Amino acid sequence: MNTTLLISLYIMSAFYLFAGISHFRKPDFFLKIIPKWVPSPKKVNFLVGGIEIVLGIGLLFADIRAYAAWGIIALLVAVFPANIYHYQQARKKGKHVIATLIRLPIQGVLIYWAYLFI
């Protein structure tokens, strides 16, 4: 693996570790963006955080890196409805509309980034 890709891998791993830990440190932020139709939002928030931590660590091990990358892709697809919901809520409140709108296509970039490690 070349140096640029290796640095990218470490950044991605740190990104998911930070995001996962944030689900436990600042759960209220994430609970606000979980759609109302999701059952047990607190449990789902902690579950997603735990998954992000495990996948972020998994990226660091060559033997399971591809599985972790596929897991990240699956997770990004699974949480996409929450990002749409967050955008809809932002539009309704008239706050953070541009930021939540930009976040939607960023999911595609994150999926591509993870795909690089499959």
Score class of each variant (00 low, 15 high):
Met12Arg: 08
Glu52Asp: 12
Pro39Gly: 08
Ile106Glu: 15
Ala69Asp: 11
Gln88Ile: 04
Val48Lys: 13
Phe80Gln: 15
Ile53His: 07
Thr4Lys: 06
Trp70Tyr: 12
Asp63Arg: 08
Gln107Asp: 07
Gly58Leu: 08
Leu31Val: 11
Phe61Lys: 04
Thr4Ile: 15
Ile53Pro: 04
Tyr87Asn: 11
Ile102Val: 14
Ile64Met: 08
Leu101Tyr: 06
Ile57Thr: 10
Gly49Glu: 01
Arg103Pro: 02
Leu76Ile: 03
Phe61Asp: 11
Pro39Trp: 01
Ile64Glu: 08
Ile84Asn: 04
Trp37Leu: 05
Asn83His: 08
Ala19Gly: 03
Leu59Ala: 05
Ala66Met: 09
Lys26Gly: 02
His86Gln: 14
Ser8Lys: 05
Leu55Trp: 05
Pro27Gly: 13
Asn83Arg: 12
Gln88Asn: 14
Thr100Met: 15
His86Ala: 08
Tyr85Ser: 03
Thr100Ala: 11
Thr100Pro: 02
Ser8Tyr: 03
Ile84Lys: 06
Ser40Ile: 06
Ile33Cys: 10
Leu47Gln: 12
Leu9Val: 02
Gly49Met: 01
Val77Cys: 11
Gly56Arg: 15
Phe30Trp: 10
Ala82Gly: 06
Leu60Trp: 09
Phe24Glu: 07
Arg65Asp: 02
Ile34Met: 05
Asn45Val: 02
Ser13Arg: 05
Arg65Asn: 07
Ser40Lys: 03
Phe24Tyr: 03
Leu31Ile: 01
Val48Gly: 13
Gln88Thr: 15
Ser22Glu: 13
Pro41Glu: 09
Thr3Gly: 08
Gly58Met: 00
Leu9Thr: 04
Thr3Asp: 12
Ile98Asp: 09
Asn45Tyr: 00
Val77Asp: 07
Gly94Trp: 01
Gly108Asp: 05
Ile7Val: 10
Gly71Met: 00
Trp37Asn: 08
Pro35Tyr: 11
Ser40Gln: 10
Pro105Trp: 00
Phe24Thr: 10
Gly50His: 01
Pro41His: 14
Leu76Ala: 04
Phe15Trp: 05
Leu104Lys: 03
Trp70Cys: 14
Gly50Pro: 08
Ala82Met: 06
Tyr67Asn: 11
Val97Gln: 03
Ile72Tyr: 01
Ala90Pro: 06
Val54Pro: 02
